[in-house]
Design a protein around this nucleic acid. Structure first.
Lengths: 71, 71
DNA sequence: TAATTGGTTATCATTTATGACAACTTTATT
DNA sequence: AATAAAGTTGTCATAAATGATAACCAATTA
């Protein structure tokens, strides 16, 4: 159950997309209406995000949900 | 926060893929190691699944995570 | 050096997903 | 009609996500 590789991969993808848009974690977190601390954990794959959280991030990044899994 | 349309769409997609494989909710639930009752709720969009849950379902359906969002 | 920015980590309260079980309804099938 | 299979719903305990605040580290910039 300690296989969090999917979380890590999705987190890296979020980071990649975020950086390609020139946004800081702070910026992206604000667009998602949550705190930068949670964005840090999300990108690091330290949480198991819910679908609604992933959707918020995708919308804030202006990408589809699919792009979060295209790694 | 009552906008659960993404959950509903993902749920429908799971149902579609499940039926195309000729599996019952019971069958699929068993492959995911959880109860058929939870599979029912998942397909109905009544829960906000975590990434790990979605991954279990994708694996059990022998599809990629992306296919769960390709609707 | 001091201040700012970006990111990480610890901790907390609240909410909710998960996993489970039982009871129920619906839909075949014999 | 009776049985079985498929799906739904209610409820529960436990674990964990979420949302928030604060403190911290690292790198940059004035």
């Amino acid at each position: 159950m300690s296989d969090n590789s999917i979380q890590i991969n999705v987190g890296k993808q979020i980071q990649k997309l975020r950086e390609s848009k020139g946004l800081s974690q702070q910026d992206l977190a604000a667009k998602c209406n949550f705190e930068k601390s949670n964005m840090s954990r999300l990108e690091a794959g330290r949480v198991n995000p819910t679908l609604s959280t992933l959707e918020k991030v995708a919308k804030a990044l202006e990408v589809t949900l699919i792009e979060l899994f295209s790694f």
